[in-house]
Design a protein around this nucleic acid. Structure first.
Length: 318
DNA sequence: AATTTGACCAACCGCATCGCC
DNA sequence: GGGCGATGCGGTTGGTCAAAT
């Protein structure tokens, strides 16, 4: 140890990223691909440390990121996986290809942790009250049934999330009101491209020309972005239309949507969208093989019926 | 209308791990 | 096998915004 932090250098910017920086970074990654983060600041002229660049890309700019409200399935997935794996957010995120570990972590810390605590408190209270009878304690059999239910739910959510036939299944799924959550505006369902579109919108207003000419970014390099947003491209365009067709057209030309590049490998979810960029064969996933098998076994879509069967009782899942 | 409070989330920090020499 | 640099990961912080007072 004793190594100085990578961001110790003077002249390295911190804090929120500007649209210009985003564009430079996206453009660079588009040309060179993600990875070799060390080289990114020097090659792009960005006054950011490599770490910051990587983080910005993986958490915000990377195509395929779904932002905003978590669906009920996702929520459950997170709860199950967190119970199984603990706070291994990156691993959990690998099972929710559209979500970043940061997103999941934030969601857990702000929503689910609280919820779980509350639940634990209630359970503790009731247990104290009936400790002599024990009649309401979950029997082993009940617990196992519940676990099986959880497993099925998780599988279902995962299958939906990774199903190539239903790329928008998670996106379009309406979040059932669960009582504890504020209804979020629909605009929260945003892709990374939309995020950039927003940024661009503001940035264009303030004068794109000066900015781009100074950067190392050739404008035409936007036309062949390698990775695409397969989940929400249509939605992105539609929503951009609301804000102005000019923007959407400009944006469409920036990111030539092409979902064919995205590989949803069912046999290896963790090397999918999230991981394949810089970590093709991450050994960190090794301990997961059991869970993978657990989640992916019985590939048959029995989940659908099961889902409707179980849903009314979902409050018991915690 | 002004202030306080709380929720949310992007970004930072430091440690762990990986991979190359 | 050990050292070192690069990258990944999880915990935490701090800024912003909306709701409450």
């Amino acid at each position: 140890m004793g190594r100085p932090p990578c961001c110790d250098k003077t002249g390295v910017m911190k804090g929120p990223w500007t649209p210009e920086e985003d564009i430079i970074l996206v453009s660079y990654i588009q040309e060179h691909g993600p990875g070799n983060w060390r080289a990114v600041p020097t090659n792009t002229g960005l006054l950011r440390c490599s770490k910051s660049c990587r983080l910005r890309w993986t958490n915000y700019l990377r195509p395929g990121i779904k932002r905003g409200n978590f669906t009920h399935s996702e929520e459950k997935m997170i709860i199950h996986l967190q119970a199984l794996l603990g706070n291994r957010w990156a691993t959990i995120a690998s099972y929710l290809p559209q979500r970043t570990d940061n997103d999941i972590k934030n969601y857990w810390n702000t929503h689910l942790k609280k919820l779980k605590k509350l639940q634990a408190g209630q359970e503790g209270q009731s247990r104290d009250g009936i400790s002599s009878t024990g009649s309401q304690q979950i029997s082993r059999g009940q617990w196992e049934r519940r676990l099986q239910t959880d497993i099925h739910m998780a599988r279902q959510a995962l299958s939906e999330a990774l199903s190539p036939e239903k790329p928008n299944s998670l996106l379009t799924e309406l979040k059932p009101s669960s009582g504890y959550e504020k209804p979020a505006p629909a605009s929260l369902y945003a892709s990374s491209t939309e995020n950039i579109a927003k940024l661009l919108k503001g940035w264009m207003r303030s004068g794109p020309n000066q900015s781009l000419t100074n950067s190392t970014t050739p404008q035409n390099s936007f036309n062949n972005i390698a990775v695409a947003d397969s989940f929400s491209s249509e939605e992105t365009i539609n929503r951009a239309d609301e804000n102005g067709t000019e923007l959407s057209e400009a944006f469409e030309s920036l990111f030539g949507f092409d979902s064919s590049n995205i590989n949803f490998s069912r046999s290896s979810p963790d090397t999918g969208l999230l991981q394949d960029e810089s970590k093709p064969n991450s050994s960190a996933q090794v301990p997961l093989s059991v869970i993978e098998r657990w989640l992916f076994d019985e590939g048959a879509m029995e989940g659908k019926e099961y889902l409707s069967e179980v849903t009314p009782d979902e409050n018991n899942l915690f």
